[in-house]
Design a binder for these strands. Structure first.
Length: 397
RNA sequence: GGAAGUAUUGAGCAAUUGGUUGGCUCGCCUGACUGUAAAUCAGGUUCCGAAAGGACAUGUAGGUUCGAGUCCUACUACUUCCA
């Protein structure tokens, strides 16, 4: 047993380590674009970037067993959601389990979104004030107040390796003055998040890295201003939020370009909520390292498959007698073990296995895509490869 | 052989006393989905037309009526019951 002063010392030390606990090594830079390959190291292992992080909102990547996720899809990190986990199963159970990793039996990295996206997606059920956001639970209508402070505490209890600042994700289109006011509030909230984090120690025996979020809607001057503010916070990694909310792809690219020019090179950059395979490649070219999106999982459940040669709506009649492999490339085992006709049949009769197969395929493809991008960045021919891929993926099969 | 009942779209059903059925659910077809209120949602689904729009429509054939899915007659098919 440590003496009380010893515990205090360890406590202080952990706070010092916190800001720098996560390590990021930049390994390669593409000569013809801003794409980079890197390596993030945390207490739960290595994250090779660029990376796509599957979304597991409520403690599961929907439709995939952890074993399949780990062994077949093999991502270094997945997402959880603060708002959803706070409502269910609720913090006491997560704490009793020893954090989300143990609760869901996932021993690699986890990142939790702060609930900032729910400020956007549940806009009809919440009220934003300077103090925080009052939500009406989508489950039972009960009222809950999220503040920068308690969101940090909740994320300590969930115990993800990377935790996000509490922000407002603005809608699109967004009035300039609203975007500006919202951005400043997100900045003030950031300060409160950081101040409060220093007061709340880690709950488990590993550290957590904190990422602030750039806002500013689709306005370049606001994006620049926000990127500078966020860069100044000197966090271990930085995120770009408020995009992929309905704006045209060109606006998305224009905003990430402005922002990645300002965000520090020696820290990972995370573009939140993006996107289509093409969106991802284009943003890697603009210097983004981390992505997450519900598309591969949600669209899989709705019958859409992403492939290197375009997307497929497996529910379409034309696949009914197509006995060819789901995807000849065979990235995951399901791609060659099952035919398109069989998968279409499973969707027709609404068997859950169809959704599971489609999810494994899509996630396998997304992870393949970012891994392949990484290889080409290291090999130095990313730009050429990317242009070729964008061209061939931009169609419906 | 007799009696009763039923007949509306691929299926199952709606439609106030006779007063605009192309109505609903499912199925089918096609979209959409970007830090997950989503195994969800939207549209289409008689025929012709790309569309605007038009045509024909309540088993078949007639009848009554200003007007019939609804009332009357015959026929056909099906269901149930009695022989």
């Amino acid at each position: 047993m440590l003496p009380v002063t010893g515990i205090y010392f360890v406590f202080k030390l952990s706070l010092l380590i916190e800001i720098r606990s996560m390590k990021f090594d930049l390994l390669a830079q593409d000569p013809q674009s801003k794409a980079r390959a890197g390596k993030i190291t945390t207490d739960h292992g290595v994250i090779e970037t660029p990376i796509f992080m599957p979304v597991g909102t409520v403690g599961t990547v929907k439709g995939v067993h952890q074993r399949e996720l780990k062994e077949e899809i093999n991502p270094d990190i997945i997402l959880g959601n603060t708002y959803h986990l706070y409502l269910r199963p609720q913090l006491p159970i997560l704490e009793k389990a020893g954090g989300l990793h143990k609760f869901m039996n996932w021993d690699r990295n986890i990142l939790t979104d702060s609930g900032g996206y729910q400020v956007y997606s549940l806009s009809g059920r919440r009220k934003i004030k300077e103090e925080g956001v009052k939500f009406k639970s989508h489950i039972d209508g009960s009222t809950h107040l999220f503040t920068p402070e308690n969101v940090m505490e909740i994320q300590r209890s969930i115990g993800a390796d990377i935790i996000m600042a509490f922000d407002e994700c603005t809608p699109y289109p967004c009035d300039y003055n609203y975007a500006k006011r919202s951005m400043h509030m997100t900045h003030r909230w950031l300060k409160r998040c950081m101040t409060h984090l220093e007061k709340v120690p880690f709950k488990y025996d590993y550290s957590q890295a904190f990422f602030p979020i750039v806002q500013g809607s689709t306005y370049k001057d606001l994006r620049r201003q926000s990127a500078e503010y966020i860069a100044n916070a000197d966090a271990p990694g930085n995120a770009i939020g408020g995009l992929s909310v309905g704006e045209p792809a060109e606006e998305l690219y224009a905003m990430t370009e402005v922002v990645t020019e300002i965000l520090p090179e020696d820290k990972p950059r995370y573009l939140m909520g993006v996107g289509t395979p093409i969106n991802i490649l284009e943003n890697i070219a603009l210097g983004v390292d981390m992505f997450d999106c519900v598309m591969p999982t949600r669209n899989a459940r709705n019958g859409m498959l992403f492939t290197a040669h375009g997307s497929i709506n497996i529910k379409n009649r034309k696949w009914a007698d197509d006995l060819s492999a789901i995807d000849e490339m065979g990235i995951t085992w399901v791609d060659t073990e099952y035919s398109k006709a069989y998968l279409k049949h499973l969707f027709s009769v609404n068997e859950m296995l169809g959704k599971q197969i489609a999810t494994i395929h899509n996630l396998g493809f997304y992870l393949w895509l970012t891994r392949e991008a990484r290889k080409h960045i290291i090999a130095g021919d990313f730009a050429v490869w990317k242009n070729q891929m964008v061209k061939q993926m931009d169609k419906r099969l």
